[in-house]
Nucleic acid binder design. Structure first.
Lengths: 137, 137
DNA sequence: GCTTGCCCTAGAGTTCACTTCATAGTTTAT
DNA sequence: ATAAACTATGAAGTGAACTCTAGGGCAAGC
């Protein structure tokens, strides 16, 4: 299979696929060269790219991905280590979610204030005063 | 107040402050030049940086920030427009949270599978088969 | 008057995950 | 035979928000 065909199948551009190869995410199980130097992809390449997409979908950077794929290839991690890794990832994402929650808190307070400002400017003033005591701005 | 003092007060680096100025986030209400060309910051600069931080804390890019600050300076938006904007921001953040939720879903499934693999490999096999039907990988 | 430690500028470097470009060889269709 | 469409390479560009460097000018203490 040539590069454009693979790209179409996977919903990627040929540039991205070559980029992944350069980054060491694909090896000779996935790509070989024809006599004219064109890349020829095996079926395994499809599985590989699916795996790459899966790792990306759980928030992995390409650097992490590379490591994970190497471990995957060499079977070099125990189930327990993998479980640990998953839990670490989960915590990482929980933290990011919490950051967003804080943003939402702030936005909700702003919204409350602005709404009050339309309906009852006096109470809005009060709210502003209470808000000032104990936080920034 | 000189730049290092302001940086210390605000928990920023002098580079960041100069960068903000270059980006048009600070103007002559906040910085003036001394005879030796050193920047001299007013108290308003502190408020300005606090405001910048607040906008950042609710997930604004510097580009958005710039716009928001201009509106803030010129008082050019009605309360209703601001409420709309806040709601838009909220939706944006909710969407990002949902992406993280999807990641967590996937991670939880992986975790479940890996845990089962330790305790009951046969059931884990089953799970894998069921998982395959209806999704990728 | 010398060192240390601020301050200035313009511009380059960083990270990430691509994307685009310039240039050139190969294959396919007409 | 020639044009269109594909392939290859290495290198540069993108965007966001800084961060750092080089090369220089002031300032304060001894």
């Amino acid at each position: 299979m040539k590069i454009q065909e693979l790209a179409d199948k996977m919903g990627l551009t040929i540039h991205t696929i070559r980029f992944y190869e350069k980054e060491g995410l694909l090896d000779n199980r996935h790509v070989r060269r024809e006599s004219n130097n064109y890349r020829n992809y095996s079926e395994e390449a499809i599985e590989r790219l699916k795996l790459i997409k899966k790792f990306q979908s759980i928030g992995c950077s390409l650097a992490e991905l590379k490591e994970a794929l190497q471990d995957h290839d060499t079977n070099s991690r125990t189930n327990l280590q993998i479980i640990d890794w998953i839990q670490g990832k989960k915590e990482e994402i929980e933290r990011k979610k919490q950051e967003y929650d804080q943003m939402l808190d702030t936005l909700n307070k702003m919204l409350e204030y602005r709404t009050l400002l339309m309906n009852d400017p006096q109470k809005a003033e009060e709210m502003l005063r209470n808000w000032h005591t104990g936080s920034s701005d």
